[in-house]
Simulated scan of single mutants.
Amino acid sequence: MLRWTILLFSIIVCLNVTAATNLTSLSDKGIDSWEPKEFSGESIYTIDEYKGRLALKALSHNAASGLVLEQQIDLTATPYLNWSWLVEKTLLQLDERSKKGDDFVARIYVVIDGGFMVWKTKSLNYVWSSNQDKDLVWDNAFAGSSVKMMSVRGKEAQKGQWYQEKRNVYQDLIDIFGDKGSEQANQKAYKYIDIIAIMTDTDNSGKQAESYYGDIVFSAM
């Protein structure tokens, strides 16, 4: 009996460890299910081999458009967002906290969709900042406190180098938008995200950016 209990426990652990959802699946053209969203001009996204890995290449010249996936993710099951990215051209001399400088060479963001209750819509942007320090959080210049920017990479990051990232989105949402006071209340507020997006944008500055994204994966650990 003990042996079967240990075996069952091992299977459960393995399932929890390996639980993951690859949202882009670049090698299998999974990115084709993402919808283009244009805000101001069109950034160009293509799949290409770059510096040793398959990547989503993003080119932007005075443009702001992204790729959007409407898919609900249960953050209590797979709270970790994993991705890699590389930047070749940064946007110098911008105040990215201002409307004129609200451009980013690379960003991945998640959205809690409030639907008709617009005030409940929240977005967290994980950005590669060309001018801010790493690990800063600020309100979006256009949307205010409902959209938060987090500089996962900052001005000290190296161009032409792949960086691997891992963020606990569930915990980040609690930390950034506020702890509701109990696990039950936090789950009610932050358990699900509804939209994931990728964007390289330069419309406010009129500059050029060149960036690369690896697969985007949500995982249990």
Rank of each mutant, 00 (worst) to 15 (best):
M1D: 13
K166L: 12
S98P: 06
I73C: 04
E210G: 01
V147F: 09
G178N: 02
G41H: 03
L91D: 07
L59S: 12
W138N: 00
H61F: 13
R3C: 12
W128P: 05
G30P: 05
D32G: 00
A58D: 09
I11C: 11
A157K: 02
K51D: 12
A197L: 12
N168Y: 05
K99I: 15
T76S: 14
L94Y: 01
T78H: 00
W83L: 10
Y213D: 11
S40T: 06
L92I: 12
A55S: 11
K51V: 10
F116E: 13
K180F: 10
I196N: 02
K148S: 11
K99E: 15
E165N: 04
S40V: 08
L91F: 04
L59K: 12
F142P: 02
M117V: 13
Q164L: 14
R107Q: 14
N62A: 15
V152C: 07
S211H: 00
R167P: 10
V169I: 15
D74E: 02
K191V: 06
S205Q: 04
Q132N: 13
D179Y: 01
Y50G: 00
K51W: 03
Q187G: 12
R3D: 14
A185Y: 02
E70R: 11
Q161M: 14
R53I: 04
E165M: 06
S84H: 07
L81A: 09
K180Q: 15
S43A: 15
A157D: 13
F39D: 09
I198Q: 00
P79Y: 06
V152M: 10
N22S: 07
E156H: 10
Y212C: 09
S123C: 09
W34L: 04
K155I: 14
K191S: 08
D133C: 00
A209Q: 01
A106Y: 02
G181Q: 05
Y170N: 07
Q72V: 14
A197S: 14
K188R: 09
G66L: 09
L23H: 05
T24C: 02
S151A: 15
K155F: 08
K191P: 11
G214W: 02
E88F: 05
R53P: 03
Q161W: 08
D139F: 07
A106Q: 02
E35M: 11
E156I: 11
V87A: 08
N140K: 00
W83K: 00
Q208C: 08
V147C: 10
T46D: 15
K29Q: 14
M149T: 05
L81S: 01
T202L: 07
H61P: 04
K100F: 08
S43P: 05
C14Q: 10
G214S: 09
K134S: 09
S211C: 07
M150N: 10
A157C: 06
L75N: 02
L2K: 12
Q184S: 11
Q171G: 06
W162D: 11
N62C: 06
A143E: 13
S145A: 11
G144K: 00
A185W: 01
P79Q: 01
V13I: 14
L94F: 04
S130A: 11
D133F: 03
R3G: 06
